[in-house]
Amino acid sequence: MNQSNEIVSEILEEKIIRLSVGRKIFNRALRNHTFLFGLLIIILFALLAAFPEYIAPHEPTTILSDSGIQPQSTKYPLGLDNLGRDVLSRVVYGARASFIVSFGSVTIALLIGVSLGLISGYVGGIVDIVICRILDAILAFPILLFAILTLALLGGSYTNLILTIGLIYMPYFARLARGSTLSIAKKEYVESSRAVGSSTWRIVTRTILPNIIVPITVQSSLALGVSMLIEANLSFLGLGVQPPTPSWGRMILESALYIRQNLLFMLTPGLCIFITILAYNLVGDGLRDILDPKLMD
C-alpha cells in the first residue's frame, strides 16, 4: 500500500517537474513586476520602431509649414521642428534608428565578445595573454573619440554605427565572459566533464556557456541602454544616422537652438532616450532575479 502510494506520488511529481522547467521561469517572470514594466515599455517602443507608418500622423520628412518651428498645438501635439516637420512623427520614426543600432551593436558585441572571452578563459596561456592585451588596447581608447574617428573616416551609416559601437562594447562582454569562464572552469563539474571524455568544444558550449549565461544576459540588457546612449551621443555630434533620417540624438542637437520656441522639440526625444534606457535596466535587473537557479524553488 505504502509502496504504491509512493509510486503514484512519484509519477505525479514527474509530470509536475516535466512541465515546470520552462514554466517556472515564465511564472517567475510573471510575478516580477519590475521586469514586466520594463518589458512593456520596450515592447511599446519596439512597436514604434517596427510600424512607425501606422502610428505616426505624418511622414517624418514632410515639411508641413513654411514658417518653420511651431510650439505644440491641437493639430501638432508636439509642435513642429525648425524645418517645419512634425516632431511627434519624427520621434516615432526615431525609435527605429535607436533600436536597429542598439540591438545590432549589442548582438555583434555579444557574439565576438563572448566567444573571445570563452576562448581566453578556457584555453588560457599565451592565447589568453594575447586576447587580453587586444581587449586592453580597445578599452584604452576613449569611447567617443574612437567612434568619432571611425565614423568620420567611414561615414555615418547604420552598418558603420553598429560595427563601431559593437566593437567598442565588445571588450566588456569579453572580460565578463572570461572572468566567469575562469571561475567556472575551475569547478569540479567541468573537471568531471573532462573525466567523462567530453571534447573541449562540448565542455565550453554545454557546460561553461550555460553557467555564464545569466551575467551575460543581464549585461546585454544593460549594454542595450549604453549603446543606445552612444548612438544618441554620436548622432548629437552629427556622426550618427545622417539626416533626414530621424534619430533621437540628432533631434536633441537640432533642437538646442530652439528651446524657447518649442520646448517639447527637445524634451520628447530626451525623455524617449531616458525611458528606454530605464526600461532596459529594469529588464536587466528583473532577468537577474528570474534566471537565478537558486531561487527556482
Binding site: E188, Y189, E191, S192, S193, P210, N211
Partner: peptide, 11 residues
Amino acid sequence: FQDPYASLNPR
C-alpha cells in the same frame, strides 16, 4: 569526486 555539491553542473 569528493564534493557532490561541486561536481554536478547546476544548469
